[in-house]
Design a binder for these strands. Structure first.
Length: 343
DNA sequence: AACAGGTTCAACCGCTTTTAA
DNA sequence: TTTAAAAGCGGTTGAACCTGT
């Protein structure tokens, strides 16, 4: 038994909105507001539309200060970074881009940005994953369906796939020391940041083995790879002030934090998408449920894990977590190893 | 000019989350 | 605390438009 429909489907108009409908809805909301009840709104406005349809039309098209098209390079960078980091959380991504709607960003990503970033699915039977390290995906597996399924995964999964393929094709390859094995990022800025971060990791990779915490899993370097840096970059990039584009990979501390040698943690709130920082000594006060869950469980179960970033001069400066928070490692203030731990 | 295939984007669908009674 | 309704969200669809042959 399903739930009751939100409106009378038989008597509701569907399809594109006419200018008259737009004008009616816009005029009413501008004068009276939504009244906090979209379902009741169409009747008040005098529209034969579903309340959900009105809401969508208002939010995506009619409300003031909406921008359509003409995405800037900066916006591209933000979208790419966030998508790599958090996946298709369009509403959260949209929250970082004033005037943009989740629908717009989703369309832009699916229609253009993804293709630009990842290349076409296939071109002459190959996947143009990276211009410098293109792979023939037909070499991996023979089942057409499974290939398509793989190729339609998120960019993050594709990045992981890239790494896996590298490992499969060349088990002795070292992802950390051989730049040719790393996928290229779309934009020069992001690419540069990634390179910086990876370089810092190269220098500090040994720290991964020096964490003393029972909470940390053993870390397979192959699994602590690109996604962590991409995620780090995303979190960092969102806070880079204008004119300070190169600060990534160095500690972001305020004066007191520096003088007290306190490390800082970045976080992203689950509901608002808000980014923030707090110092180590505050970590225990953070409502863990507020934090973003970043990692889906392996087999499609609920998302349980959370991700913390940390950096600074100490190693293993982990949240006081007993169920699913991770160690970050730092050396010379760099963002480097970040370790996942699932509860 | 006609057609096919690709792209764009508004809108819908159905599921999940939140809210309020 | 429970439950139903509303809101929010992301995936998908399909019509309009674009581009190449």
């Amino acid at each position: 038994m399903g739930r009751a429909p939100c409106c009378d489907k038989a008597n509701v108009k569907k399809g594109p909105w006419s200018p008259e409908e737009d004008a009616k809805l816009k005029a009413y909301i501008e004068k009276h507001g939504t009244g906090g009840n979209w379902i009741a709104l169409p009747q008040k406005v005098g529209l034969r539309r579903c309340g959900k349809s009105c809401r969508l039309r208002w939010l995506n098209y009619l409300r003031p200060n909406i921008k359509h098209g003409g995405f800037t390079e900066e916006e591209d960078n933000i979208i790419c970074s966030l998508y790599i980091s958090i996946g298709s959380r369009w509403s959260i991504i949209a929250a970082q881009l004033p005037g943009r709607t989740d629908n717009d960003i989703k369309n832009y990503w699916n229609g253009r940005l993804k293709k630009r970033l990842l290349g076409r699915k296939r071109q002459n039977n190959t996947c143009r994953y990276s211009s410098s390290t293109s792979h023939d995906f037909n070499k991996v597996g023979t089942d057409e369906e499974s290939q398509n399924a793989t190729l339609s995964n998120s960019s993050l999964e594709r990045l992981q796939l890239h790494i896996q393929l590298q490992t499969l094709q060349n088990p002795s390859s070292n992802y950390y020391t051989d730049p040719t094995l790393r996928p290229k990022m779309t934009t020069p800025l992001l690419s540069e940041k990634l390179a910086q971060s990876l370089q810092l990791l190269d220098e500090n990779q040994h720290n991964l083995n020096s964490v003393s915490s029972n909470h940390l899993p053993k870390t397979d370097p192959g699994s602590v790879s690109l996604e962590y840096y991409a995620r780090s970059i995303m979190a960092e990039a969102s806070h880079i002030p204008e004119g300070e584009e190169n600060y990534l990979g160095t500690p972001r501390m305020d004066d007191s934090a520096v003088s007290n040698n306190h490390n800082r943690q970045s976080f992203m709130k689950r509901n608002t998408g808000e980014f923030g920082y707090y110092n180590d000594h505050e970590a225990g006060n953070i409502a863990r449920d507020d934090l973003m869950a970043w990692w889906p469980s392996d087999e499609g179960g609920e998302m349980k894990s959370e991700l913390g970033f940390s950096w600074g001069s100490t190693t293993g400066n982990i949240f006081p977590a007993d169920q699913g928070i991770f160690g970050g490692l730092g050396s010379s203030g760099s963002l480097c190893g970040i370790t996942q731990y699932k509860s």
